[in-house]
Write a protein that binds this DNA or RNA. Structure first.
Lengths: 155, 155
DNA sequence: GTTGAAATCCCAGGTCC
DNA sequence: GGACCTGGGATTTCAAC
């Protein structure tokens, strides 16, 4: 893992469908060593996958909600059941374990406000272990950064 | 935009580097119409790009922070200056405009806790317009969903 | 207008230096 | 890390429905 590898990663973050040739040119390498580095990064799970970026609004998912959740307890069973139930909900795009007064932060994607209400009533409310729940809606994305901030370490 | 297109999108969300042939097989189409649909989706900006998914911890970015920010006012100038300054910060991976008592939600990526402190002191504190600032740290990702929830509309 | 088929071009992946 | 080689995928064109 050197600065060349980080360059490769940055280029693939900007365009995940780059051909190896293109990629090689951009990082000033010939195709073979470039491909070898790429395969290494994939094998050591530095690169865990590739995905298409979709315009959520255009797709029909107009509402992004962030939900902060506190659990009734942090016992093993409560936590496991909660996380298992959350794992089954398609609307939950991301779920983070948090420090501070809240335990989890969820990013939810639904069609519109009325569907969010339905999601909470039919699905979230049947997830076990929730003590409190605080929803905020995002009505715009101001910034999205595909590439990571610089790191100075050199290995 | 029909259910076939949604299938194509779902497959590309799961694997953004799928070849057109593979993709065509998975959605039960021959390569040519599949490619034409794909190009359409790209041209109409339904698919806005492709990216590599990187293991942040393995890369060296061990700390994910979510910051909720309230502005001192919502005047055009304050908002514009704030958003412009935020746009320049590499550590800010995502920035959402929020409803509710907070105005913005930021997702921040830094190496470790000490670098977060440095980030706040040297960079965030010089962003104009901030009235209050509330940081929570994520110390684990419980779930990440690459594919969208189902939508029933058929056009 | 939309699908299937064929031909050309170019890339990926392997091997050797 | 670089150069060569081969199989296979992408892309364009054309014919058919």
């Amino acid at each position: 893992m050197d600065s060349r590898d980080r360059l490769i990663i940055a280029e693939l973050q900007k365009d995940g469908r780059l051909t190896n040739q293109e990629l090689a040119e951009r990082v000033n390498l010939s195709p073979s060593p470039c491909l070898r580095r790429l395969k290494n990064l994939e094998e050591q799970k530095m690169i865990t996958g590739y995905t298409a970026i979709i315009d959520e609004k255009a797709y029909g998912l107009g509402v992004t909600a962030f939900v902060r959740i506190r659990l009734i307890s942090h016992s093993r069973e409560i936590v496991d059941e909660f996380e298992k139930a959350i794992g089954l909900l398609d609307e939950v795009m991301e779920c983070y374990l948090m420090t501070g007064s809240d335990d989890y932060l969820l990013k939810i994607l639904v069609e519109e406000l009325s569907s969010y209400e339905g999601f909470v009533r039919k699905k979230l409310h049947s997830v076990p272990g929730i003590a409190s729940l605080d929803t905020s809606f995002a009505y715009g994305m101001v910034k999205r950064n595909l590439t990571f901030p610089n790191i100075h370490k050199n290995r």
